[in-house]
Each structure stands twice: as structure tokens, then as C-alpha cells.
Design a protein around this nucleic acid. Structure first.
Lengths: 169, 169
DNA sequence: GACGATTATTTAACATGTTAATTGATTGCC
DNA sequence: GGCAATCAATTAACATGTTAAATAATCGTC
């Protein structure tokens, strides 16, 4: 009974359809991601990492010495945000930096030994959690979902998600 | 050649498999949401609204006079964040507040006339954009994807996404 | 009907997202 | 070679996410 106008004439107070199609897709993507991340977050937090810091470590676990722009693309973090996050991780001894020899504008980043050790903990736990999650959802459902997402990203223009491979050097 | 160690022995410098399964799902959900939001954002920004402010307006366009907790659940925004955002929108004349008569702890919120007018602009544009988007993806692909997301949210525990209906009053 | 436990909202402190502007380096073209 | 346009990285200013703590009201129980 909180909604005082749910009696008869919704015309004046509620001029919008109760189901707005355009709301569903972004919202469900948000909810779905939240539901998944709730599983992974405790592991990250236990190691003192935020979601974003975890993405950065993961990206650097795959490829060493990439520049900030490439890193930003790979882990979906705005370059401006990276400029604040990376120095923090360097101070904590998880990352190290080094100027690019061929282009003095660029700075490249990599994990330290400590960084690799820390990420190893994240990673082993994450794979375990992902396995459990895949069991709950069912492998085929999961596969379908991932394919659907891939298709959507592809069609709507991955833009930065495309990841142009290497620095074409 | 930015990755100096891509020659022969990746053992010491890259102790992690290049494909980490646990990374794919959250990342693709993030990318997909970004891809979709890129379509809707210009409309919001043109009216001076952030993504979150848009979600709040939309939630309130469906149901009037809901309390902060319920609003937070419906638009997936942390109550602590709402406590900052809502007053801003009240100042801008888009929202109005009123204490709940039956529970003095609660504050309820609704759109103003100006708020409804503003959202009407967002909404008509959004539906148009969504239509175009559905065309690109194909109706069936979109349906499948939405069902997959629903299933995942359901199975992984929607938690707050469940939306317990009313304030059970 | 008083009291401890819970709940709704807010605030503070810090981390990140967003946008615009800045600085230094590189590129393309004359 | 010089210069305008572009680009990489950073910084500033503001909005939001996150966590913990504070406050006030309500509930459950006795």
C-alpha cells in the first residue's frame, strides 16, 4: 500500500508501461555479473584486492610488459583510472614499471615475483569456484550463455573489447 | 615485441595458462553490458543524467512512493550510494521525498512532474534504440540471451535481485 | 511496557568511473 | 628540418561503489 495510486486511474501518476523492454537487457547483465562476482569477491578481498586490481593482475599474468593503453583494453578499465591504480600496486610490490624503449610516451607494466605469487592464490581459488559454478549452471547452459555474449559483443561493436593482439611492432 | 619473453621458455615468467576459464564469464558480462550501454548513454547524458540516475528514474517511473531499500533493490544501487544520489535529484527538482507514515525509519521517494517529463524523453528514445538493437541481434538470439541471464541469476541466487514484491504491509 | 536485537537511513573514508584539460613524445606532411 | 596533428599518460574535479560505523526507529520477548 505504499503506492497510493494503485486503485483505478494510473493515467496521471504512472504514464509509463510497467514493462519497459529497454530496461531489461542492461539490468540483467548487471545483475548477472553481480551474482557471479559475489562468488569470486571473497577470495580477492582476502588478499586485499578490489575487483579491478584483480582484473589487472590477471591481465598481467597472461602477458608481461604491456603498456597502459593495452592493459586498459584487456581489463576494461579506463586509462585514467589505471593511472591511479597501477602506482598503488607498484607501492605494494605487486607490479613493476619500465619505460618503453621504442616509444618514450609509453610506460610498460609487469607483475613482480610477489605479484605472481599473490595472483597464483587468486587463480587456483577462482578455477575451483568456477568449476562449482559451472556445475550448478550446467555446462551447456554456460556455453550457450558465453556464446550469446560473444555474439552480442561482436555485433554491437566490441570497440575496445576487440583487443588488437599485439602492439604491431 | 613488447613482451620480451615470448621466445622459448615461458615457464618462469608466465606460470599461468593463457586461458583462464574463471576470467571469461565476469569479463564477458562486463564487456556485453558496456557494449549495450554505449547505445543508451548519449540519451542519458544529453539530459544530464548518469547511468545510475537513469536507473533510479526508471525504477520510479514504474512504481511511485517506494522506500530507499526497495529502490536500491530495484535499480541495483547500494543504499549508501542512494543516500548521496537521491538528494541531488531532489535538488534538481526531478524527485520528491516524504516520510513513511507507518514506519518512521523509512523515507519514500517519487518522481515529480518534471521528473516524469524528463524520463519520458529518456524512455521514448530508449525504446527506439532497443528496437534497433534487437534488429541487429535478432529477436531469437536476444530472447535466448535474456533467458540465459535469467536462469543464471536465478540459480546463482539473485539475492537482492529477487525483489520481494512489496513492503509486505 | 522496558530492553536487547534488528532494521532503515545516513555519514565518513577510501577506491574507482568519467570527463576534460595538461604535458611530453611521436607522426605525417610540407 | 620544422610544424601541426595525433597520441600516451597523467592530473583535476566530480559522481559513484564499498565498507564500516553512527543514529534513530521498530520488533520480539519477557
Amino acid at each position: 500500500m505504499a503506492n497510493t495510486n494503485s486503485r483505478s486511474a494510473p493515467r496521471k501518476t504512472a504514464p509509463f508501461p510497467t514493462q519497459m523492454m529497454s530496461a531489461a537487457l542492461p539490468m540483467q547483465l548487471l545483475r548477472a555479473r553481480e551474482a557471479v562476482m559475489q562468488r569470486f569477491r571473497p577470495t580477492l578481498r582476502a588478499l586485499g584486492l578490489t575487483d579491478q586490481q584483480g582484473r589487472i593482475m590477471r591481465a598481467l599474468a597472461e602477458v608481461e610488459w604491456i603498456d597502459m593503453m593495452e592493459l586498459a583494453r584487456r581489463c576494461c578499465i579506463h586509462p585514467a583510472s589505471l593511472s591511479r591504480i597501477v602506482p598503488r600496486l607498484v607501492e605494494r610490490g605487486l607490479l613493476r614499471r619500465r619505460p618503453d624503449a621504442r616509444d618514450a610516451r609509453r610506460t610498460t607494466v609487469a607483475l613482480t615475483g610477489k605479484g605472481r605469487a599473490t595472483f597464483w592464490n587468486v587463480w587456483t581459488e577462482s578455477e575451483r569456484i568456477y568449476g562449482a559454478l559451472a556445475d550448478e549452471l550446467g555446462a551447456s547452459t554456460l556455453q550457450e550463455l558465453l556464446r550469446g555474449l560473444d555474439a552480442m559483443i561482436e555485433i554491437l561493436g566490441g570497440a575496445d573489447a576487440t583487443v588488437p593482439g599485439d602492439t604491431e611492432d
